[in-house]
Amino acid sequence: MTAVALAIAVFLAVAVVVYVALPFLREPEPESDALVELDERERRRLELLERRDRALAALKEVEFDHRTGALTDEDYRSLVGPLRRDVASALQALEEITTEDVPRPPEEEGQPVRARTST
């Protein structure tokens, strides 16, 4: 091995060890070392939010397809009812498990649910 190669190899080894150990070097004694995980309540909320968003997206698509003429009035009426009920039941379930204050998203991170339902 040439001297240059040896020097690069040594530098590489040191850099790698430091980089891998960085989380421990930065926080030798952290307040908490727990990986952020969702608790059961949050997990249930996530499932309901997914269900709500899925139903809202489906509703939007049905409304748009109806508007384009891809769906007849008859099909639209038969589809839109169950979808609205899906949204309502997800929202109701969400309401039921929301017992504490949930922080409102800042403007740049999200929009209210109603705003997202418009096409």
């Binding site: 690069i8 590489l12 850099a15 790698v16 980089y19 891998v20 150990a21 960085l22 989380p23 421990f24 926080e27 952290p30 908490s32 070392d33 727990a34 990986l35 952020v36 995980e37």
Partner: peptide, 27 residues
């Protein structure tokens, strides 16, 4: 180990190892 035991710093360290592996493979 980090994922099974829920250890944040160890998980980050393992992820750093993957990033470093890219660096050494690049060399």
């Amino acid at each position: 180990a980090a994922a099974a035991q829920g250890k944040r710093r160890l998980a980050q360290s393992a992820q750093n190892a993957l990033v470093a592996a890219f660096g050494t493979t690049l060399v």
